[in-house]
């Protein structure tokens, strides 16, 4: 996994609640292996005018000032719904490394942490303030620091956030959990001996 320590980047606003993973990557693009570049599927339908291949000029991701964005700032319950990990891949392949929202779908949050895409939860008022700032000055930069656990807004205000210590450790080091867990084989085997045949059939 790609490590995440500190990111200073343009942030793109998507000020809507309940943006689900079906919108992030529609179902018809799910059957691809991870090796495929998923960036073209990101918000595939939302970024086009209905029923056409024409880009929707109102969709923030289509706007020039936001093109370099590696941070996405969204409304509550971002990436709710389906467990499709390709929602993370599509964001990651399009360059995103961080999402900021008042809340996330639990599964997406886990998927992000395990794929180098940091989900940052800030209070709804702070997210609203951040969106107002990046909409007022498209292209404004935001800094996310996973060591200090802070987000620095364009106006210079600093906002702390919390993240699971274990997930943070893995992200900072770019660690992959499978390797770590395999090193605990003795303890898993001991558990299995204690657990016996319970729930085996």
């Amino acid at each position: 996994m790609e490590a995440f320590t500190r990111l200073d980047s343009v942030a793109v606003p998507l000020p809507r609640p309940n943006i689900d993973t079906d919108q992030i990557i529609p179902g018809r693009f799910l059957s691809r292996p991870r090796e495929v570049d998923h960036s073209a599927f990101l918000f595939h339908d939302a970024r086009r005018l209905p029923g056409t291949e024409e880009p929707n000029p109102d969709f923030p991701l289509n706007q020039e000032a936001y093109r370099p964005a590696r941070i996405i700032v969204a409304g509550r319950n971002f990436a709710c719904g389906s467990s499709r990990e390709s929602a993370v891949w599509a964001l990651f392949d399009a360059g995103f490394r961080c999402a900021i929202a008042p809340s996330f779908g639990d599964i997406f949050r886990n998927n992000g942490m395990k794929n180098g895409l940091l989900p940052v939860v800030l209070p709804a008022e702070a997210v609203a303030a951040l969106i107002a700032q990046i909409e007022a000055a498209p292209g404004a930069r935001v800094t996310v620091d996973l060591v200090a656990l802070t987000v620095t807004f364009p106006d210079g205000t600093v906002h702390g956030f919390e993240v699971d210590p274990f997930a943070r450790h893995c992200l900072l080091e770019g660690l992959d959990e499978i390797g770590l867990t395999l090193s605990l084989e003795d303890q898993i085997a001991a558990f299995e001996r204690r657990f016996g045949r319970e729930n085996s059939r």
Partner: peptide, 17 residues
Amino acid sequence: GIGSTEVAHVLATQTLW
């Protein structure tokens, strides 16, 4: 429900963090 990275983890270790 879990994502595919977690599915791989469960396949390999029968556990989940």
